[in-house]
């Protein structure tokens, strides 16, 4: 954008789309480079560290499966925070943020389901089981698709914003269900082993690549989220200007 970038003096200035666009143009190149470097390092670690004594090579699936699953929940949490921003503070970018995050969340949830299935077949002997963890993540995937359809079904973003925000907040109940499903019910899925009150139960050999890959995926998410918010701001400007053009054409005729 060639427009001059106004200075950011306080947090609420970020609500100004023009300021946000300026900020995105400055931050995204750094985020993109950091993402690429982190992925290069993560993939190097993922394929140079040792296999597990029981799981063998398939432990390497964990380095993409766990970050994707973690992002699927983080993305929904960001959407829930955005929904609060829409309903409580009427922040003009909150709805844009929630709408832009939904396809990313759907993508990472899909990846978590696919890689989980590819890990389940050799380790559990089955591609899929309708147990608590797998089913609740599948429900999360369907919720992302539903929210994508809803936010794109109505022409007026102001109308769809409130409906989507309410639905996002209702759906947030699924996030603790996913997190604790492995403790509340009998499931094939293993219980939490990285984030535990008594410390991680994973050996450093596997934890290092896992954390680097999780960092890389998280950076990728924020890079894409910034860009997707920018795209959505542009899209709304295009439709506003098209409406303006139509009004002007009407007046002239």
């Amino acid at each position: 954008m060639s427009e001059p970038i106004p200075a950011i003096k306080k947090f609420s200035d970020l609500a100004n789309p023009t300021i946000f666009l300026g900020l995105t143009a400055r931050i995204v190149p750094f985020l993109a480079v950091a993402t690429a470097l982190m992925f290069a390092f993560g993939l190097y670690l993922a394929f140079t560290t040792e296999g597990d004594y029981q799981q063998g090579e398939t432990v390497r699936i964990m380095y993409v499966h766990v970050p994707a699953a973690w992002l699927s929940m983080m993305c929904y949490s960001i959407m829930a925070a955005s929904a609060l921003g829409t309903l409580v503070w009427r922040h003009p970018l909150a709805d844009v943020s929630a709408k832009a995050a939904a396809p990313l969340g759907a993508g990472f949830t899909f990846l978590a389901l696919v890689t989980g299935s590819l890990w389940g077949k050799p380790m559990w002997g089955t591609w899929w089981e309708w147990d608590a963890r797998l089913t609740s993540v599948f429900v999360l995937f369907l919720m992302y698709l539903g929210l994508m359809a809803l936010t794109r079904a109505l022409d007026d973003p102001a109308k769809s914003a409130r409906v989507a925000a309410v639905l996002i907040l209702i759906g947030f109940v699924n996030i603790p269900i996913i997190k604790f499903s492995v403790e509340w019910w009998n499931t094939l899925h293993q219980p939490a082993s990285v984030m535990r009150m008594d410390g991680s139960a994973i050996d450093g050999e596997f934890l290092r690549p896992l954390l680097v890959m999780a960092g890389a995926f998280t950076l990728l998410f924020f890079t894409l989220h910034f860009l997707a918010i920018r795209n959505e701001i542009w899209r709304r400007r295009v439709s506003a200007q098209r409406r303006l053009a139509a009004r002007m054409a009407n007046r002239e005729s």
Binding site: E57, T58, R60, I61, V64, H65, A68, G107, F108, F110, L111, V114, T115, L118, W119, K121, P122, L220
Partner: peptide, 13 residues
């Protein structure tokens, strides 16, 4: 299975 998982990740990303 490992190769397929990384291929799927590459495609989705």
């Amino acid at each position: 299975y490992v190769a397929l998982s990384y291929a799927a990740s590459g495609i989705v990303v």
